[in-house]
Design a protein around this nucleic acid. Structure first.
Lengths: 208, 208, 208, 208
DNA sequence: AATGAATGAGTCTTCATTCAT
DNA sequence: TATGAATGAAGACTCATTCAT
């Protein structure tokens, strides 16, 4: 899957277009869900969405654009969920917040089996990988900053690198578990492990 | 110990086969290193290895088998490196050991850019993903066990799930950094972050 | 006089159809002018003309019909220009007339870069090629006949074949220059070459 | 037909390769001959050549390359024929030489009906058009120069522009006749017309 | 055993044309 | 009458794999 230049597709008056686009994205997710990247072709997507291949290309300039839209949508949802959590919990204490974050991410991943395939599809597209990591890092930064606000003595200050390491660790752990032992994603012990890891990670370090 | 794959690995060695197989694997690695998945075809591999495509198919039944052999070889090396570290450092204290582990993994990843492509190329193969995760978990278990031996009071006991979480976190963080900010892999601060994370992860937990 | 094509051209004019048809033809010409055959699609034509693709197909049964109408219109203009030249210059001497013809054709070609694309787009259509050649031959015949009227002693009589050869030579030379060295089209020396060629061609031959 | 970048195809030991290539080119010519550009697809070419589409792409990096090879081969033959004529006729007088040139070109065109389609296929490819025109111009220059050698008093000196005009006129006339009235190509009167045209064209001009 | 020419199913993408609204 | 969403046949090109030599 190369990365052609973006072309313009003029969109009709956003009404029925949205429906078609959503159906195409839905079909893409379904297709990715079963079978992964095998058989993941534009023709299959179109067929499953109930449209012709021509229609698919009316709304997306190329295959990669479909995946990008999926991923962007996912990232938007993740960021929105993070903000909601942060705003709705002004009163929460730090531990509850940490638990909330971990749980929120875990739920998101254990809910949709498609994510797994999306992730694997993503991996070919450098731009998407970058966008994803950047978003995750930003979310982690938001949380970590909030924790410091809540209890400046207990938590260390976030840095670029600490957020990189943390988001990588948290998401990476979830990702590999998703592939390897998806059922563990719902195991309370697994959640506890992650919470502990995050907690220690963001805590102020005693000089070693 | 490379051998023709999926021929039930009859005997340990098969004379000159070794050499050919190694050269094919080497060519595969090189090809993946520059160019990633683009242009990564069986014909290219054969050509670069200095053999004909027909010869390549004498030693590997299909492309996936080459990838699997590569990955297996990599995993074998990783496990061997881990054992060496563990054995050669009987006298090391716990902190040194942790630092040694992290450093060893970091070096392995920052050395070869090929791993990145290999990772993405392999992610489609469920069996390989499983094998990889299993190995990493086993390695983590070995280390964690050793730590407990060194200082039973300071470290908690490893569990299946804790090793899963830890290996996912450690490797996942490195993986996403590799894709997103490969230069950070050599940043001492990044190493410190990982060391701290691992240290806390394996430490006995104070009641929260 | 554009009309819906291949509907047997019932009546000379059909109210507002004229305007739409002209706009479509104009859009076609513009599109061909920039970009040539690349991106030259019915949808682009319709969009640029400010109509929907459906509307375009109300006025033209298929893409080829648009091209034909364009070409026909061009031929009609060429023939009209030729007649104007012939009528308006009753007093001109023969050499002036020849120069006038050559200059008129050259100007027509160097004015619009679209002709180049039109030419190449039409070359597949045997009927159009025939129509074009026939028209050019007819025009040449008109001129040659007039020259004989002006000075029967100096000029030989036109024949079917001589007009074919002459129109082919004149237009062919211009055509290849248009493709290969368009700037030469405005070079006075080039014009002189053509004038000389035509002059000799239509002159009475001394016995060789 | 876009113009992708040339890729490299490593050629096997020129033995059987040549055969396959020739068969592909032959099939291309045949296909172009009947049906012109309609149905002129890579798959058709391969099928007609008796090979699979994959084989075709083993020898040609893309469709355009096939046509370029055809055209180049044609041009090479034309130039070779011209040189042969020039060398073999050191003793010929000027008129015989002119007649020889015209006749040689006419024969070449009336022999192969494929040329017609090649020409039309060519027209999309700016590079080929340029190459073709350049070759024709060069050939004309060779002839014109020789004529001056034979009889410096009778013939004017060739210039860049005169050769452009002449080759355009000669080939252009033939081209349009080929499309429009191919049978005239064998008409002695048509040949005489062309000979006269060329003769006058290269003759020294009396001051007008 | 080695070679590499040949295969062809499968992939993405385009675009003229139709037709329900 | 106008619209534009939808269609789908068709085309260029790739690449894992086979097999005659």
């Amino acid at each position: 899957m190369p990365q052609p230049i973006e072309k313009k597709r003029k969109f009709p008056h956003q009404k029925r277009a949205h429906k078609t686009i959503d159906e195409i994205l839905e079909a893409t997710a379904q297709l990715l869900e079963r079978g992964g990247k095998a058989g993941f072709t534009t023709n299959h997507i179109a067929r499953r969405a109930g449209y012709s291949i021509g229609t698919l290309y009316r709304y997306f300039p190329h295959k990669l654009a479909i995946m990008r839209e999926m991923a962007d949508s996912e990232l938007r949802q993740q960021e929105a969920a993070a903000r909601t959590l942060l705003e709705g919990t002004g009163a929460l204490d730090a531990d509850e917040l940490i638990r909330g974050v971990v749980r929120s991410i875990l739920q998101r991943f254990s809910r949709s089996r498609a994510r797994k395939s999306i992730l694997s599809a993503l991996i070919d597209d450098a731009e998407l990988v970058a966008r994803t990591n950047e978003t995750h890092r930003r979310i982690m930064h938001m949380f970590h900053t909030r924790l410091v606000e809540i209890d400046p003595a207990r938590f260390r200050r976030p840095t670029e690198i600490s957020c990189l390491a943390l988001s990588g660790a948290l998401l990476g752990s979830i990702r590999s578990t998703l592939f390897y032992e998806p059922q563990s994603l719902k195991d309370p012990e697994y959640e506890r492990e992650l919470v502990a890891m995050v907690t220690h990670f963001v805590s102020a370090r005693e000089p070693t």
